[in-house]
Design a protein around this nucleic acid. Structure first.
Length: 615
DNA sequence: CTAGGGTTAG
């Protein structure tokens, strides 16, 4: 039997490291008679992976000889454990750097949100590899700088599949679904085969757009090609089905998957939460506990928001408390946001305010926005004023809070304040994105805007007759339009039209005309549904006996039960899955080719709202 | 045989 050489030792070492059996790896490492650079580097990498940086560094310092890879491994180890500044110190003193070292350092900055430094580092790179470009694209994207990411993408001459999937992902993550599909299409028209990450992103787009049928087809193809046994794919599939309203299928994908990871559990819990199914969410949360997978911060966002939606204050408070005591998860801003929402919705406004005061760190716009919503619901003008002022400060470009604050002042007769605020708004040239709703009928997407006079739907008069009929029925059922504007975020444009013409009502009326009896009417809205429409639609589902599912910018509203959809529309996207052999055709009407930076943060901000147009 | 890109989130 020939004596083992250092290479075969190292192969075994690598196996142990990959499985995370770090102490066994070290025992083996100590047995190697002559350790070379590779063996030592492998051991260092192993320690870094499990966060044992001190031991890694000790080995690194003891090395008789170090090559670039050893240096880069150590730097990357610091980066992966959020020790960017330590990494930078090493980076500065390393004798020789290659593209990988630069990229590792670059990612260190992007991952902790220090995008400016990442950008500087990128500019300083002598050779900009494709991977470094890809990393920067993702970095800009993660930090909300979509236009900058696109710029790097355009500048990258030799794009590889990672470049494409990075750009697609950025668009997808930042709410530019159509742009994501556009890049995906462009990629394939240039003959680039979609890789795994890009397929995942596109599937996510299907989820966000709630293109149920298309999502299903992608799923079918994934099953056929046995991609569906992948954990990553499984999570996205669950999310897709959830967002498309097919809760049963989502659960089935979950149940059939043998080795569930944390993200899969979270996907199901979050999905139930988005549907307001707190009981189911809590049951899965419980199952998760007994399965031995420890809950993480994302889990709690799901569980807490589920409690909030159903008003389960007691359960919510208990779970929030258990986060630190039982699960050892430190609550973050997001969790405080859930709690403020939970307490606020239940009318416990003072406790919500206390929560804001006692949280570590500053409350963000989401928190103040949810407190403001609660104040509107429970008619607390004084606290509403405090929240609205904070919001105006935090989001000077958003007109919503300005309008609300102005309404609050008006209701108190403080006209000087109103005038001041209006002047302020005019000088900043603020505009609000108009509301619009979609409904899919016979594979076409029909879009409605609030005051669609300029380009009416071809069946406009029929829709109007339907609406009048509905109005009559509603009146008989005791419905009275809610026109208390004082605490409502009323869009200037929409205010000009009567409440009867809110886009979601038109879409629902159209659905009643077109969707066959027995099938749910699925409507999608780009903004949040207003209180009046909410109660009107609830009543409509009652008097007509139809199931209506409204998905707004925030969540699903099941009237009876179910879920759903929209779509937007003038290019035809052909999603052809090369190698999988399937082609999906989307018809999408009008979307802008360029994305201005200012819109980066708005999730459902459709740059141009086009009234329905017949092709 | 060692270093750089994939899943969930109010």
């Amino acid at each position: 039997m020939p004596e083992k050489n250092v290479v075969s030792w190292t192969v075994m070492l690598g196996g142990l490291v990959q499985d995370g059996r770090i102490d066994e790896a070290r025992a083996l490492f100590d047995k190697i008679p002559v350790k070379d650079v590779v063996a030592r580097t492998s051991m260092i990498g192993g320690y870094c992976q499990v966060g044992r940086l001190a031991e890694a560094r000790e080995l690194f310092d003891e090395m008789p000889r170090r090559n670039v890879i050893a240096w880069t491994t150590m730097i990357s180890g610091y980066v992966q454990n959020q020790r960017v500044d330590v990494a930078r110190k090493l980076f500065e003193v390393m004798p020789e750097k290659n593209e990988v070292s630069w990229t590792a350092m670059l990612m260190g900055y992007t991952q902790c949100g220090r995008i400016e430094e990442a950008s500087e580092l990128f500019d300083a790179m002598p050779v900009k590899s494709v991977v470094s470009c890809n990393a920067l694209i993702l970095g800009f994207g993660q930090n909300g700088k979509v236009a900058k990411a696109r710029h790097i993408f355009d500048q990258t001459r030799e794009k590889d599949d990672g470049t494409w999937s990075s750009m697609i992902k950025v668009y997808e993550r930042q709410g530019f679904e159509l742009e994501a599909l556009g890049v995906f299409t462009l990629m394939q028209s240039l003959g680039v085969k979609p890789n795994f990450p890009s397929l995942i992103s596109v599937l996510s787009v299907c989820a966000t757009l709630a293109i149920l049928d298309h999502g299903r087809q992608v799923h079918a193809q994934l099953v056929k090609s046995r991609f569906d046994s992948d954990v990553y794919v499984a999570s996205v599939l669950i999310t897709t089905y959830m967002k498309c309203g097919d809760i049963v299928k989502a659960k089935r994908v979950f149940d059939r998957f043998p080795h569930k990871d944390i993200v899969m559990w979270n996907s199901v819990i979050t999905g139930y939460a988005q549907h307001g199914l707190a009981e189911e969410a809590l049951r899965v949360f419980n199952d998760m506990f007994y399965s031995g997978i420890p809950a993480d911060d994302v889990t709690f966002i799901g569980v807490l928001s589920a409690c909030s939606y159903t008003g389960q204050v007691k359960e919510g408070l208990e779970i929030f408390e258990s986060m630190t005591s039982k699960y050892l998860v430190e609550p973050r801003t997001e969790h405080y946001a859930c709690m403020v929402d939970l307490l606020g919705r239940a009318g416990r406004l003072n406790e919500a305010m206390d929560m804001i005061k006692k949280m570590p760190g500053e409350a963000d716009a989401i928190i103040w926005g949810s407190l403001l919503g609660a104040c509107r619901k429970h008619m607390n003008m004084d606290m509403a004023e405090v929240a609205a002022k904070k919001l105006v400060q935090l989001e000077p470009k958003n007109s919503g809070p300005h309008i609300l604050l102005s309404n609050i002042y008006a209701s108190k007769g403080r006209w000087a304040d109103v005038a001041e605020l209006r002047k302020n708004m005019r000088s900043r040239n603020m505009s609000k994105s108009p509301g619009c709703s979609w409904i899919e009928v016979e594979k076409k997407v029909h879009m409605f805007t609030g005051g669609g006079e300029s380009m009416p739907h071809p069946e406009h008069s029929m829709i109007m007759r339907m609406w009048e009929k509905l109005s009559g029925l509603l009146k008989e059922a005791g419905y009275c339009p809610d026109s208390s504007f004082a605490l409502h975020d009323v869009d200037e444009e929409e205010k000009a039209y009567s409440l009867g013409y809110h886009s979601e009502k038109l879409a629902v009326a159209y659905g009643l005309l077109k969707v066959p009896e027995g099938l749910p009417i699925r409507v999608m809205k780009n903004l949040r549904v207003c209180g009046d429409c909410h109660s009107a639609i609830k009543l409509i589902s009652k008097v007509t006996g139809r199931e209506i599912i409204l998905r707004d910018a925030n969540r699903f509203h099941h009237f009876k039960d179910g879920s759903w959809v929209y779509f937007r529309i003038a290019n035809t996207f052909s999603l052809h899955f090369v190698g999988i052999g399937n082609s999906l055709d989307y018809t999408i009407e009008k979307y802008p080719s360029d994305v201005p930076e200012a819109q980066d943060k708005e999730r459902f901000n459709w740059p141009v709202i086009v009234p329905f147009r017949l092709k």
